[in-house]
């Protein structure tokens, strides 16, 4: 089984994976951590808005919408 790392923004709807790392820094990083996006957290892409941005994700049991700009800074390991 091959493991790949993709930014959360590129996770297709219905696909899931675990947070490998956050590349965000400063307040955005703090905010993402507060949302429950720590290394190892399971995340699933749920749906996208018509323009594709923002997109909704299941993060630890809550559906949260993230902008692509922010979701780009979350690296997901899929297998």
């Amino acid at each position: 089984m091959s493991r790949t790392i993709v930014p959360l923004s590129q996770l297709p709807n219905g696909a899931s994976g675990k947070v490998a790392s956050l590349t965000a820094q400063g307040l955005i990083r703090r905010h993402l951590l507060d949302l429950g996006l720590v290394t190892g957290s399971w995340v699933e892409a749920i749906r996208r808005s018509p323009a594709g941005d923002p997109a909704a994700f299941n993060i630890r049991g809550a559906i949260i919408a993230l902008r692509n700009e922010d979701a780009n800074q979350i690296l997901i390991q899929t297998d």
Partner: peptide, 11 residues
Amino acid sequence: TDATCLERNLN
């Protein structure tokens, strides 16, 4: 806190 996703609330 929300009992259905308690973990994320404990932060």
